[in-house]
Amino acid sequence: MRQLQSFIIKEFYHILRDSRTLMILLIMPIVQIMLFGYAITTDIKSTPTAVLDHSFNTETARMIEQLQASEYFELYGEVRSIDDVHLLFRQGKIRMAVIVSPTQEVQLLADATNPNEATSLVQYATAIINSSGMQPLAGVNVQLLYNPQLKGAYNFVPGIMGLLLILICAMMTSVGIVREKETGTMEVLLVSPMNPFYIVLAKATPYLLISLVNIATILLLSRYLLGVPMMGSVALVVGLALLYALVALCLGLLISTMVATQQAAMLISGIVLMLPVIMLSGMIFPIENMPWLLRVIAHIVPAKWFITAVKDVMIKGLTAAEIWHELSILTAMVLGLAAFSVKRFKIRL
């Protein structure tokens, strides 16, 4: 036990003395939250919108008022004919049009060159029109559940957690172990009575701790700065994050058994691990819209399960029993990866 303790202390020295890396690790979640929360927002604001109102009564006037009042739409001014609407679309002056027929039927036109945006616009407009007391749109009765304002933050906060935990746990652990190989200290450690399992455990501990700090930072910022609700239990979210961090640690360990240099470890964890988190976890691109091959691959990306589960807990308020599916998949991943990488971890050179 004393061996393990002194090994962990040593790891903390390494991290604390490399203050630049430590700063990056601690500040990164803050920067990411800010970036996604404010700069790279996927939310829609002030979309130029034309209204062609053939009914022209109080109800439609109220509806137009409410569209105008919402932050999503900016009324372009009056248009007189459907030809005008098409012209404005072609000129790129509007991206959305609301057309009310004399029988008070509402038709929505959206510029679908950006399909994601168009879908959102239609959903927003539908929601506003429905709530304005007008007759529900014919044939469409859209209700937006859990995220009625369609806030992007709800989506990317779990995503950032998924990204950062992989980065810190997998990349830093693999680099840390490989560094000992590179400097030759691993040789000495192997030729000591020290249990190789301790080496791994000691490497992982500090990063697990840093991850905890990061999880706390992200949750606090998202709750109080971005106003993302926390419907479910905080403990469950933290538990999920820890479970996911363990998956990442095992991946890092696995990488360290495969490569010989720190650069290789960094490249592999960067490209092989981080890209799927960004592309295939549903964080940015909806998995449902992917071709079947990518959908299959997405299923083995741990981040996908983690992000789904965190969203369920944070936003829908589900309980542990209700996300047992994701929990058990992540647990299975931990066990499988741990067994595999411990088996691969060489007690010789």
Partner: peptide, 29 residues
């Protein structure tokens, strides 16, 4: 039962002389 010193001096460059020595002592129980 063996002591081994590999070709490159395998020390932790970011630990002090004292810390290196203490660390290796505990590693060897």
């Amino acid at each position: 039962s063996v002591g081994y010193m590999p070709g490159r001096f395998s020390l932790y460059q970011d630990l002090s002389v004292e810390e290196n020595l203490k660390f290796f002592a505990t590693v060897f129980n």
